[in-house]
């Protein structure tokens, strides 16, 4: 970002930007501003301030914490939060462990390709496979429980309010582990071998070496993985749409899916805009945190 490049001033260069600028203005910038704008108005185009936001936050499908702690449905906002609390550490650490193990193992690229497949898989396909995996009678999870002889655990996990959300969260670790793995792999490749030789001479145990040398040096990668993973978890939509439609009831709904329901099922554009703006605010908050860290460096 701080790279200074100098050169030639060539003529009429703004002309070259214009197609990209026109596209972004029309299809990105203007719609975002329009969404923010209508989030402050009622369907009859009266200015209501934060009215839509209060309205949305008071709804059970967005925030339902009465009698907390309890099982889902807890509302989309809490569901997204649970997604971050469970999915982020799981996918991040499994990716980190894999990257460290695979650093100097023969045939590492084969393992990496198999694991990264989850990142390439369309999320719609991921959702279908998750649903299938947890389905009673046909899915692999239940085939596994049957083999173990715990048949009472063999059930359609996505069909019960207590387990639907968690089935999707745990299942989606499979899709995203590849990301943290390749980012950490790239980071590990930048650590000079001498550091480890020095640590060895000093008689440091592998654990000590990892926590004193490797992990601190991977901090930029950790920041990247945490940021991008949180963004992914905030935008979760396809998986929920295809695996459970947010159900049963509201038990596995998330903000992005709820926004879609408000807009395209209820045709309540103002409430939808409030959810969308709120979501954008959350992602910007996370992003700005990352950019500030990058610039400080």
């Amino acid at each position: 970002m701080t790279r200074r490049k100098t050169i030639t001033s060539l003529k009429n260069f703004p002309l070259f930007f214009s197609p990209a600028i026109i596209l972004i203005v029309f299809f990105v910038a203007y719609p975002v501003l329009q969404t923010v704008y209508i989030s402050f108005f009622s369907p009859t185009e009266e200015f209501v301030g934060l009215g839509n936001y209060f309205d949305v936050l008071s709804r059970k499908e967005i925030l339902n914490v009465e009698g907390f702690p309890k099982w889902p449905p807890l509302g989309a906002l809490i569901h997204n939060l649970l997604w971050i609390l469970i999915h982020l550490p799981l996918s991040m650490f499994s990716g980190l462990v894999l990257a460290v193990i695979l650093r100097d193992v023969k045939g590492a690229s084969i393992v990496k390709s198999a694991i990264f497949l989850g990142m390439v898989t369309p999320l719609i396909v991921g959702g279908i496979i998750l649903r299938f995996t947890f389905e009673r009678g046909v899915g692999i999870v239940n085939a596994f429980f049957n083999v173990l002889g715990v048949e009472q655990l063999a059930r359609t996990w996505t069909a019960y309010p207590e387990t639907a959300l968690f089935a999707l969260i745990f299942g989606s670790v499979w899709l995203w582990t590849g990301f943290s793995m390749i980012i950490y792999s790239a980071g590990l490749a930048t650590i000079p071998k001498e550091y480890y030789e020095a640590a060895k001479i000093d008689g440091a145990t592998p654990f000590r070496t990892f926590f004193r040398i490797t992990f601190p040096l991977l901090k930029p990668m950790t920041i990247t993985v945490v940021t991008m993973t949180i963004l992914w978890e905030l935008k979760i939509f396809d998986i929920v749409f295809v695996a459970t439609r947010g159900g049963p009831g509201w038990a596995s709904t998330v903000l992005a899916y709820q926004m879609w329901l408000y807009a395209f099922r209820d045709l309540n554009f103002n409430n939808a805009a409030a959810v969308a703006t709120f979501l954008t605010f959350l992602t910007l908050f996370v992003t700005i945190g990352m950019i500030r860290y990058m610039v400080r460096r």
Binding site: V28, P31, V32, T35, I38, K235, A256, A263, L279, T283
Partner: peptide
Amino acid sequence: LFFTIGIFIPYQAVLVPL
């Protein structure tokens, strides 16, 4: 910055006006 800001915008933020 203007070009790249789109990476971070959730698609939900543009759907209705789009």
